[in-house]
């Protein structure tokens, strides 16, 4: 039962007030994309044991989507940040690396 702080309204929300939206920072592939690229967009997911970027919606609160960087093993939350972020922000990456020097990044 996680607690994630919604960056849109500041509430430290109980997991039961949130809705999970799967992996964050996916790039939409659409008309004109190759089958491989489209397949990757629809189905390929990192599912890491460790640092993970996720989409969450404050469903029982302000209704806004936001992103969370957290560790799926230790449950440490490195950051929650705006849903309107195409890739992990530099400060979030820095915060993760400070805590997890062995982390290989998102690539």
């Amino acid at each position: 039962m996680l607690i994630l702080t919604c960056p849109c309204c500041g509430i430290a929300a109980d997991e039961t007030e949130l809705e999970n939206g799967g992996e964050a920072h996916l790039k939409r592939a659409t008309v004109g994309s190759s089958d491989e690229a489209f397949e990757a967009y629809l189905f390929d997911r990192a599912n890491p044991k460790g640092v993970h970027f996720e989409r969450w919606r404050h469903a029982y609160g302000c209704g806004k989507w936001f992103l969370a960087a957290r560790d799926t093993v230790t449950l440490e939350v490195y950051a929650t940040y705006s849903g309107q972020t195409p890739e992990p922000p530099a400060d979030v990456v820095k915060a993760i690396k400070a805590k997890r020097p062995d982390w290989e990044g998102t690539a």
Binding site: C9, I11, T16, E17, A59, Y60, G61, C62
Partner: peptide, 10 residues
Amino acid sequence: MRRTRLAQAA
């Protein structure tokens, strides 16, 4: 104003 859930309802 705290928006939340009350039991199973928003």
